[in-house]
C-alpha cells in the first residue's frame, strides 16, 4: 500500500469518525452519570437541522454550532426531567426522544432541504504539525471541528480521571447514594451531565450538516446516533477508546470504498458488519477476562430515589 493511499484512507476515517465521536463522548458522559440516553440519534438530527438553519440564516457556521449545542441540550433537558425528576424508564424516554427528534428535525428543516450554505468548515492545516510525514496530513489537515473533538477527548479524559469533579461524576454512575450522603446534589449533577451529553450529540449532528456533507437532508444521520450508543459499550466508557472506536467505525467505510476502487473484491456486506462484530468481540473478551462483570457504571439505568437508598 503506498503512502498517499494510506494517508487518504486514514484521513477519511477521521472525518467519518468525528460525528460519531462527538455523540459517543456525549453518551459516555451521560452514562458515566448513571443515565442511559437512547435519544442520541434524534438529538443529532435536531442539532444538524437547527445548526444548518442558523448557519444559513446568519452566514456563520460557528453560530450554527452554538445553536446545535443549545438544541441538543434542550432535547436532553426533556430526557433529564423525565428520567431524573420523574424517574421515568430511561429506555422509553430515550426511544421516544429519538423518534421525536427525527420528526421535529424534518419539520423544522423542511424549507432548508437542498440549500447550499455560503460558508462551511473547510480544511484548516495546522502549520508545522501538518508537515510531519503521514501523521501530519492525517491528523492536522482537518477542519476546526475535528481539532475541537481532539481537545474534547483530552479534556474528558483528564476531567474524568484526574479531577475531583470527575471523581464525583464516576461516583454518580457507580454509587449515587454515597455522594448524596456527603451532601452532593445528585439530581442537579445528573441534570448537568445529561444536558452536556445532549449538547455534544447536537454538535455531532452539526458536524454532519455543516462540515461533512455540508447540507441538510431529512434523517441524514442515517443511524449514526445508534452507532454512537453501541460505541460507548465498545469503548468500555473510556474517552480514548471512544476516539479509537469512532475512527475504526469511520475507517471501515473509507477502507471499503478504497478496496473497491482498487478492484479488490471484498464483500461490502461483510465490511458493514465489522463494527458490530468488533463490539460483540470486545464484550465477550471483557466478560471472560473480568469473570462476567462489565465495566459499566453500577447504577447505570437505575433512577435515583432518596427514599430507597
Amino acid at each position: 500500500m503506498n503512502e498517499t493511499l494510506l494517508i487518504s484512507i486514514l484521513a477519511a476515517s477521521i472525518t467519518a469518525g468525528t460525528p460519531i465521536l462527538f455523540a459517543a463522548l456525549g453518551e459516555l458522559i451521560t452514562e458515566r452519570a448513571g443515565i442511559t440516553n437512547l435519544g442520541v440519534d434524534g438529538m443529532m438530527l435536531v442539532g444538524a437541522a437547527t445548526g444548518f438553519m442558523a448557519s444559513v440564516t446568519f452566514h456563520s457556521p460557528w453560530l450554527g454550532v452554538g445553536v446545535a449545542l443549545f438544541a441538543g441540550a434542550l432535547m436532553a433537558l426533556i430526557h433529564a426531567y423525565l428520567t431524573i425528576t420523574l424517574r421515568a424508564n430511561q429506555v422509553v424516554s430515550g426511544l421516544a426522544l429519538a423518534l421525536f427528534g427525527s420528526g421535529l428535525s424534518s419539520y423544522l428543516g423542511k424549507a432548508y432541504v437542498g440549500m447550499r450554505p455560503e460558508q462551511t468548515f473547510e480544511k484548516l492545516p495546522i502549520p508545522f504539525l501538518s508537515k510531519i510525514p503521514i501523521i501530519g496530513p492525517v491528523l492536522f489537515k482537518q477542519d476546526a471541528l475535528v481539532y475541537l473533538s481532539y481537545a474534547l477527548v483530552l479534556l474528558a479524559a483528564f476531567y474524568l480521571y484526574k479531577t475531583r469533579a470527575g471523581l464525583f461524576l464516576r461516583a454518580l454512575g457507580e454509587n449515587p447514594a454515597a455522594l448524596d450522603a456527603v451532601g452532593i446534589n445528585v439530581f442537579g449533577l445528573r441534570y448537568i451531565y445529561v444536558v452536556i451529553g445532549g449538547a455534544l450529540a447536537g454538535l455531532g449532528g452539526a458536524y454532519l450538516s455543516l462540515a461533512y456533507a455540508p447540507c441538510w437532508l431529512e434523517n441524514m444521520t442515517a443511524g449514526r446516533g445508534w452507532i454512537a450508543v453501541a460505541l460507548v459499550i465498545f469503548a468500555l466508557w473510556d474517552p480514548w477508546r471512544a476516539l479509537a472506536g469512532s475512527y475504526l467505525f469511520g475507517g471501515i467505510d473509507a477502507l471499503g470504498f478504497h478496496l473497491q476502487v482498487l478492484g479488490i473484491p471484498v464483500s461490502i456486506f461483510i465490511l458493514n458488519m465489522l463494527p458490530y462484530i468488533f463490539t460483540i468481540l470486545v464484550l465477550i473478551l471483557v466478560l471472560i477476562k473480568r469473570g462476567g462483570r462489565l465495566a459499566a457504571p453500577q447504577s447505570l439505568g437505575v433512577p435515583y430515589d432518596r427514599e430507597e437508598r
Partner: peptide, 26 residues
C-alpha cells in the same frame, strides 16, 4: 405494568407529538 402511570402518560404524549410533527403536510 411495565411502566408507571406517569411514564405511560408522558410516553404517549411524546409519541403523539412526534407523529403529529412527522405527519405534517400529509
Amino acid at each position: 405494568c411495565m411502566f408507571s402511570k406517569w411514564e405511560r402518560v408522558l410516553l404517549s404524549c411524546l409519541l403523539v407529538g412526534s407523529l403529529a410533527v412527522a405527519g405534517c403536510g400529509s
